[in-house]
Design a protein around this nucleic acid. Structure first.
Lengths: 248, 248
DNA sequence: ATCTGTTGTTAGATAACACTAACAATGATT
DNA sequence: AATCATTGTTAGTGTTATCTAACAACAGAT
């Protein structure tokens, strides 16, 4: 039985061991027990590795484990497992409900991050969710806003109820290609799709990033851009997919 | 010089090596060059470790490195470094601007996660930021909403401009302590502070989580709760800090 | 009771990453 | 030019986590 009083769980546990705890917790919850073979299967690891890990977990008093017997978490182990799982749930929900990722991708991303989410960040995430719970229109509005989501299906543009979006669509936006050599701007929106979009993002061209058109090639086609200290060359067509706000 | 065409950067590079690339990139940007000693200092690692890492990076063609000479990134190395740094910037901004964390904590959290952010998740984050850029009132509203943020300083409650918040404050909310044995609910808001709050969250008591009051102790004081498959005992005072919506 | 297939364990190898300690190169100072 | 302090390298150790291959225990079937 668990109380709300704090208990002493070993603080520095590796993400690998945390994964084992998580797996064991889920198996026990699903079928009442966990066995080496199943843990190995779930973690996509050989049974030998599980065996070793279990010994380490037992030494840390996180798992109760008689050789060749069924495996159970100790109170501490259960607490640690629940903590990781809660982070997993939280992050999955964020990637799925807020960022609108498909369920499996969201869960995978959560898996990779659940071990490094600090208590403080966790708390902030929760507050954010509490806020969204009180004001559900916020995310609903994001979901509908074709400006931001709906990567390829700009078709759904009609049913946006985001006032600023509507306003925005009227404002004449300029693109990176509209700058003249030496002029500066700030990235507002990357309209490129697929690989080009990913390339531009990777290079550092995030929203709100300062950007400069250094010079244009002969005939104005390769545009030489400066962004985050790096220089790169873009085709004019590519540059015009980057919506910016000009700086003086 | 970099073009928007895709280049072949070794895909599976460890987070440790990514950190080295990042550090080198920043040092070169700051002072024009990087040396072993400085890298070691920045990464809080001994010089010997840096030396070995540099050899590995050179083998991977990410770093150009003549023994005892200054260190420079190759084109590929620079690309990889910029990619990591962009993720760092993106996550830092998210934790700082959206989740309202202090700058250093935001950056630290970003450090821990930057290596595992998938391209897809990155893209979704960017779309989210693009949306927020178009509709800045959204986050402004979150920032002001005392329901969610302002952990201890509920004093600032007056200047919230969130319509739903105002509505919410009028709705009579019930707490976990108002349930009767056997009744179910859904967590809406955890009003507890400090360690208790963290404990409850760690146990899995996130917003929107189903919860049940199993039974009350003698005199009604320890309340036995079921949450996410786990049982726990809460004082009545503690339970009443958990706002819920009752389920039929 | 023994045989056989499944399951779990051990031992030994490998890889990545960090460390300490000893050594080598370099540049600056006397 | 010789010396010294700084800087970087190498060699050897330890830890964590994985693997393969060989071995041990058990359960059920013959």
């Amino acid at each position: 039985m668990i109380t709300a009083a704090s208990s002493l769980v070993p603080a520095n546990i590796s993400s690998s061991l945390e994964d084992y705890l998580e797996t064991i917790y889920l198996l026990v919850q699903q079928q009442g027990f966990a066995r080496v073979k199943e843990i190995a299967h779930a973690r996509e690891v050989k049974a030998a590795s599980v065996s070793v890990a279990l010994r380490r977990l037992a030494e840390l008093d996180l798992v109760r484990y008689e050789r060749r017997e069924y495996i159970a978490l100790t109170e501490q182990g259960e607490e640690a497992a629940r903590k990781v799982l809660t982070r997993h749930r939280l992050l999955t929900r964020f990637f799925e409900e807020v960022l609108q990722m498909p369920a499996d991708a969201a869960s995978n991303q959560a898996c990779a991050m659940e071990h490094s989410l600090t208590d403080e960040a966790m708390d902030r995430f929760v507050r954010f969710f509490e806020y969204l719970g009180s004001c559900p229109t916020v995310i609903e509005s994001f979901r509908r806003c074709p400006l931001s989501l709906a990567p390829d299906k700009a078709a759904a543009r009609k049913d946006s109820n985001c006032a600023t979006c509507r306003a925005h669509s009227k404002v004449e936006t300029m693109s990176l290609a509209d700058l003249r050599p030496g002029q500066h701007g700030v990235v507002e929106h990357i309209n490129a799709k697929g690989a080009l979009r990913q390339r531009l993002l990777d290079m550092g061209m995030l929203p709100q990033t300062p950007i400069e058109l250094e010079r244009a090639g002969l005939g104005g086609d390769p545009l030489w851009i400066r962004c985050q200290g790096a220089r790169l060359a873009l085709r004019r067509a590519e540059a015009s997919s980057i919506a910016i706000r000009q700086l003086p």
